[in-house]
Design a protein around this nucleic acid. Structure first.
Lengths: 170, 170
DNA sequence: GATTTTGTACTCGGATAGGAAGTGTCCGAGTACACATGG
DNA sequence: CCATGTGTACTCGGACACTTCCTATCCGAGTACAAAATC
């Protein structure tokens, strides 16, 4: 039960991208510099987000990343699944059947243990699905510290944000 | 977001131990043989359960493992935490502050992202805390497949179960 | 024959190698701009 | 002066090493039984 630290980078990057103007772009290098992380490592996760349909990319100079969907339609679960993969955390290997004398009737119903673990993970995912980037942004508006950081983000965006050329986004 | 397969082994072992007579013992070798897993690897997790106060051990010949608490007082969460460790899955590294110009006021309130992730994990743990070994056992009684496996467990226990000597348990 | 002593076999416990996955890095494909060139 | 062609610089994308954690294994400490020796 451990999440890679790429998840945090991915979520913060999405939040950052959500704060720029409707047709703005931001390069991976700018995102990495702002968060103090390695650009080449962040790229890996940004690519995962792009492949999952959460981000859109524009190659070439003046290129960068941009949200592919409205902020209300991007949940934390979408990001976590895109970065960590969709596989469930608990995989039942049916070690009940790996003993010296397994039962002949093969297709067993899932055991109670597996069911309980799956229910717990469903609850986890449901909670993450309820929270969207829009919710995060409204919380940012309420919190003083977060507002200060958001102001810093704006200053940073004012320097690094790029306007998207009409009709040239993938 | 991935759990080691030791979790499944640990839970099944606890369920197995819950099915033996009140003062019965079962060796790690027998548990491993029944589940078809490596004994030396299972030992590691059984030790973790022992250290967490879930199992009791009796060393020496005729020794083995036994539950340390009633089945209604052992939740799946206890086992998962004992095996995987108590650290939360998501660790906020505050990469908001790792940028080129961090805020001076140090003690920031936890960011909305971290809060959401923690809430999700709380839901996950709460769901696991609700399920005890007693619940698993009652489910075993209802399911046909599980009952057949339970019968097989009984046959296995009849051979490998050991009676605890009075007053010699650690 | 009963008791003590000793030896052995079996158990758990912690410390030690191997392998997979996450982490970190690199180079290549593609695009847009800028400049130079020709009309 | 304008249009065209070319070169360059910058972007993302995927393929390649390194580190950490999980997996698998080993040897050592401790205990109970059993047998042998002694009283």
């Amino acid at each position: 039960m451990k999440l890679g630290e790429g998840v945090e980078q991915a979520v913060h990057s999405v939040v950052m991208l959500a704060q720029l103007s409707p047709d703005g772009l931001l390069s991976a290098a700018a995102l990495a510099e702002f968060h103090g992380v390695r650009a080449s490592y962040l790229l890996k996760h940004l690519q995962a987000l792009s492949g999952a349909g959460i981000l859109r990319t524009q190659p070439g100079p003046k290129g960068g990343y941009r949200l592919a969907r409205p902020v209300g339609n991007i949940s934390l679960l979408d990001i976590v699944l895109a970065v960590e993969g969709p596989e469930p955390a608990f995989r039942c290997l049916e070690i009940r059947q790996r003993g010296p004398n397994p039962l002949p009737g093969k297709p067993l119903r899932p055991c109670a243990i597996n069911s309980a673990m799956q229910r717990a993970e469903q609850a986890y995912r449901a909670e993450l699905r309820r929270v969207t980037i829009a919710d995060i942004l409204t919380d940012v508006g309420r919190d003083a510290d977060a507002s200060a950081i958001a102001a810093r983000s704006c200053a940073f965006l004012a320097i690094h944000e790029r306007k998207q050329e009409a009709g040239r986004l993938r």
